[in-house]
Write a protein that binds this DNA or RNA. Structure first.
Lengths: 237, 237
DNA sequence: TGCGACTATCGAACGACGTTCCATAACATA
DNA sequence: TATGTTATGGAACGTCGTTCGATAGTCGCA
């Protein structure tokens, strides 16, 4: 059909014209902005400025901001996927599952925006799907029903994404600006909890100290190991 | 200090003047908007229109949109808290934990925006903290170290919030508008997966059918029960 | 009765954002 | 050289959160 908008495909590099960009360049720049200053720094105007083009041009490669983030997510996930390759194949499928989950978690901690877009649009996110497949394939080695396998992968992904999203919420600006460092912030929070009414909040008080010397990764691993322990039990040993 | 902005406190109803509102009224209206048309429908202009006031007035009760959502979250959580009351106190602390988690999950499924704001600002969210406390108190009945207790509650909250957030992402408009119903959408997704390359995606293919006849709640319960099984194991019981 | 100070309301205005649109250039093919 | 497709750039639109100053209503007190 004449006038149909055909987006350039990646696999056709096409004869470089002058100040040409490409989807690849757009995604790389987008990820840079995200990395440097967080999710709020990624605007079409900032992106255009970095690429040295106009806003309109970006829409040639991407249909919307959600589309941009879907693709940026998959772009980054390629790295996660290769990081995972070769680490699998041990005797213990659950150990493999764990390794992949940890790798994914670390990636999301570095780039919290991944959490919101992982596995959101598998049409565009081939690497998300490949990662999901890789996780799932480990469950094929376990004695489970298909439904249990499905639920197992969902649970593992849920722990990773859920925990990382929770930990990744933008700190309250005073931390981000460096006015207050993270430990001091946590200490203040812990102090509030420690000062809570002991009859109304016995648990919160008892836990306040754990909260102060708090390690995100440890918290994640604890949650992950609980579900993996449950899974091992379910798979019968 | 003169000119200091003192927000009206809830516990001082104060002698009703004419078209007066209150924080309570603002939050109720905000939740209505959220319930009726999702997160994007809550704008200060829409809220002002519903309340029959100007936008500026809302800022008398609330300092920002985040603050509004923090408070709206806590407002709704009051209901969850009373729903939870009385359901606890069984012989089995893990069963109690489970019941509370399910109640919280159901609330978040009804109002997906809760996931992003639950436990975000405990200064303002007294009910969030109370719920956290209630969950934690069950762990006090388990044979665990303080750190294990902390991690257990984090894990349970993580499963609830993570799963609910995942399931609660706004469907792709064609579903929302009613043009395509949810089952058909899932079927189409499943069909895509079933058509995947069998050598590259054996798991995804095998799982496609589970995905079609998919029940969110069942998926959540499976994940929850895995971590609770792990917890029971850890508590040595 | 008058007069500040506080409480509360209202909507115009600001700046930033995602997105649309159209005029235009560069290129491929004939 | 003419034509359709590929690609670019930026003004303009509408919406959003937020700020601000003008303006009443209310209360305490001289």
């Amino acid at each position: 059909m004449a006038g149909t908008r055909t987006r350039p495909t990646e696999d056709r590099p096409r004869g470089r014209q002058r100040a040409s960009h490409s989807l690849e360049a757009v995604l790389t720049a987008a990820v840079e902005l995200l990395d440097e200053a967080g999710e709020s720094a990624l605007t079409f105007r900032a992106l255009a400025a970095r690429l040295g083009t106009g806003v309109g041009s970006i829409y040639w490669y991407v249909t919307s901001k959600d589309d941009l983030l879907d693709r940026a997510t998959d772009h980054v996930l390629a790295g996660v996927l290769t990081a995972v390759e070769g680490q699998t194949g041990s005797d213990d499928p659950i150990a493999d599952l764990r390794m992949m989950a940890v790798t994914l978690f670390d990636a999301i901690v570095d780039r919290p925006w991944l959490a919101a877009y992982f596995m959101r649009n598998t049409d565009v996110q081939g690497n998300s799907l490949l990662l999901y497949e890789k996780l799932g394939r480990e469950t094929l080695r376990l004695d489970l029903t298909p439904k249990q396998r499905f639920h197992a992968v969902s649970a593992v992904v849920g722990v990773v994404v859920g925990t990382a999203a929770d930990l990744g919420q933008e700190p309250p600006e005073e931390v981000l600006s460096g006015a207050v460092d993270r430990d001091e912030f946590l200490d203040r929070y812990a102090a509030t909890w420690r000062a809570a009414d002991p009859v109304q909040f016995p648990f919160v008080r008892a836990i306040a100290d754990e909260f102060a010397g708090h390690d995100d990764r440890e918290q994640f691993l604890a949650a992950l190991d609980l579900t993996l322990a449950g899974l091992r039990l379910q798979a019968g040993g």
